[in-house]
């Protein structure tokens, strides 16, 4: 008994250590952000006079307003389309069991392992030929394609588990496939769809290589993460401001995560195990 209690305490202590380790970079950024501009903060040190206005200054200096808007636009352009076409494909593969579905799924599965660096070079020339370089579309379109393997797999996994009797019942009531999809299947798939939307939102927000290559000059048309790279280049001589700006850039997704943490963690774990 006492030994298991010791294990329980030990486990709790370890958990706290692990939490501290995870939060360390954020704590470090936070304390650095509060130091006066023009100083060189060391390690984790709380400044004598915390400079809260650094956050406001970083917001203004880094011109974060337009970048926030740009990220939101990219998310709005990417996520709904991704979710809709992945749901349709998942329905086709999981419920309608289309001819050649296994082969198609295999094709999508290849994409799950594909590193982005494997295709970034031709993507650049492809989008250049569409005259889209330096526009938000240059991020949105490839992202939709890149999200397909996971998204289709995820939605298929949902539809496979929905009994086909539902479709058949609706069918016998005279519903068309299109009506069955929107009227019966999509409402049932809502939890899976919401999870997918959350995950792809966060992935879009954090995408770095695509905007770096495909939006080389218009930093204001990048995602937050892409802009953060440029931000680092510009303000690395000003550690407190860089730290404050980094935290501001992180904040929106952390908030989204905290609100939807249950769905996000579950989806990430399930998606991973199923994949």
């Amino acid at each position: 008994m006492s030994s298991s209690r010791a294990t329980a305490y030990g486990g709790r202590v370890m958990l706290v250590v692990l939490m501290f380790w995870t939060l360390l970079p954020f704590i470090s950024l936070f304390t650095a952000a509060l130091h006066p501009v023009g100083t060189f903060p060391t390690g984790l040190s709380w400044p004598v006079h915390p400079q809260w206005q650094n956050f406001i200054n970083a917001w203004n200096v880094a011109n974060l307003g337009p970048i926030l808007k740009s990220s939101a636009l990219i998310v709005l352009g990417t996520v709904p389309i991704t979710v809709v076409i992945a749901t349709m494909a998942g329905f086709a593969l999981g419920q309608l069991r289309v001819f050649g579905g296994r082969a198609v799924m295999l094709l999508f599965l290849i994409g799950l392992t594909l590193p982005l660096e494997g295709i970034i070079i031709p993507l650049y020339y492809e989008l250049n030929s569409f005259n889209l370089i330096d526009t938000r579309m240059a991020v949105i379109l490839p992202l939709i394609g890149l999200f397909m393997p996971f998204s289709v797999y995820w939605m298929r996994a949902h539809f496979v588990n929905v009994p086909t009797s539902l479709t058949e019942a609706a069918r016998s009531d005279g519903a068309t496939t299109w009506q069955i999809f929107w009227g019966v299947q999509v409402p049932l798939a809502r939890p899976a769809i919401i999870s997918l939307a959350i995950i792809t939102t966060i992935w879009t927000w954090n995408q770095f290589l695509l905007p770096l290559v495909l939006v080389p000059t218009n930093v204001d048309s990048r995602t937050m993460a892409g802009a953060l790279g440029a931000f680092q280049g510009q303000y690395s001589d000003n550690i407190p401001l860089l730290a404050a700006g980094s935290l501001l850039i992180l904040a929106p997704m952390v908030i989204v995560y905290i609100v939807f943490q249950r769905q996000f963690i579950r989806a990430m774990l399930q998606g991973a195990v199923k994949g």
Binding site: A86, A89, L141, P142, G145
Partner: peptide, 14 residues
């Protein structure tokens, strides 16, 4: 139903 997803995947990945 499969086509849009395949098109996006084909065009920007494959």
């Amino acid at each position: 139903f499969l086509l849009p997803a395949l098109a996006a995947y084909g065009m920007f990945v494959l």
